[in-house]
Amino acid sequence: MATASVPAGGHGDPTRRDFLMVATGALGAVGVAAVAWPFINNLNPAADTLALASIEVNVKPIEVGQAITVKWRGKPVFIRHRTEKDIKEAEAVPMSELPDPQTDDSRVTDTAKKVRREWLIMIGVCTHLGCVPLGNLPGQDKGPYGGWYCPCHGSAYDTSGRIRKGPAPLNLVIPQYLFLSDSLVRIG
């Protein structure tokens, strides 16, 4: 049997060529990352968008029965200081009558899991085609359920913002919010 001779710098002994291959590969990977980073970083939200990620609203001036609209992420947000009548009406609705069943308590609970029945905070965009329902300003038609009414297609929401009648498939959306104090709420 003939034995094979192992050339110098052979098996198990790194050669200059091996070093150059590894160095070239590493340098290529760094180059690809350096070229790709601006494109990847461009996918991050802009600074003005991040600034709008959350807003703080002073709710102290909102009297019982009154509602305001604030803008958050380019959408209207309805904040209503509900009356005892509004709360009782919302709590009395049987879940079987709701197309998108949600309890009133689940709609007035902040991210700290604290229920504040007197405050209803929701995105004021109809879930049918994105219209802004009426009922948040004095004198506007609140619809047959005393909440909000979208005259474009006839969707009617109750005093908890739940869909009761019309083509809208879902309740008005409740954003994440947190009461920082009794008079200050952070949305987002």
Score class of each variant (00 low, 15 high):
31 G>N: 04
32 V>R: 08
33 A>Y: 13
34 A>F: 12
35 V>T: 12
35 V>W: 14
36 A>R: 01
38 P>Y: 12
39 F>H: 13
40 I>E: 05
43 L>E: 14
44 N>R: 06
45 P>S: 05
48 D>S: 13
48 D>V: 13
48 D>T: 14
49 T>N: 05
50 L>Y: 12
51 A>D: 12
52 L>Q: 14
57 V>A: 06
60 K>Q: 15
61 P>V: 08
63 E>P: 00
65 G>Y: 03
66 Q>E: 15
67 A>I: 02
68 I>A: 02
68 I>P: 04
69 T>N: 03
70 V>L: 06
72 W>H: 13
73 R>K: 12
73 R>M: 14
74 G>A: 11
75 K>C: 11
76 P>W: 12
77 V>Q: 10
79 I>W: 01
80 R>L: 05
81 H>N: 11
85 K>E: 15
85 K>W: 09
86 D>K: 00
86 D>T: 03
86 D>A: 00
87 I>L: 01
87 I>Y: 02
90 A>G: 11
91 E>C: 00
91 E>W: 01
92 A>N: 08
92 A>G: 00
95 M>N: 05
96 S>P: 03
97 E>K: 02
99 P>V: 00
102 Q>D: 15
103 T>P: 00
107 R>L: 15
110 D>H: 04
111 T>F: 01
111 T>R: 00
115 V>G: 05
116 R>K: 14
116 R>D: 15
116 R>M: 09
119 W>P: 05
119 W>G: 02
121 I>H: 06
124 G>H: 10
124 G>Y: 12
124 G>F: 10
127 T>F: 08
129 L>Q: 13
130 G>A: 07
135 G>W: 03
136 N>W: 06
138 P>R: 08
138 P>L: 13
139 G>D: 03
141 D>A: 11
142 K>G: 12
143 G>Q: 07
144 P>V: 00
144 P>C: 01
145 Y>I: 09
146 G>S: 01
146 G>N: 00
147 G>T: 06
148 W>R: 11
148 W>I: 10
149 Y>Q: 02
149 Y>G: 02
150 C>E: 00
152 C>K: 09
153 H>A: 04
153 H>K: 05
155 S>D: 07
156 A>M: 07
156 A>S: 12
157 Y>V: 06
161 G>W: 10
163 I>G: 10
164 R>N: 05
166 G>N: 05
166 G>A: 05
168 A>G: 12
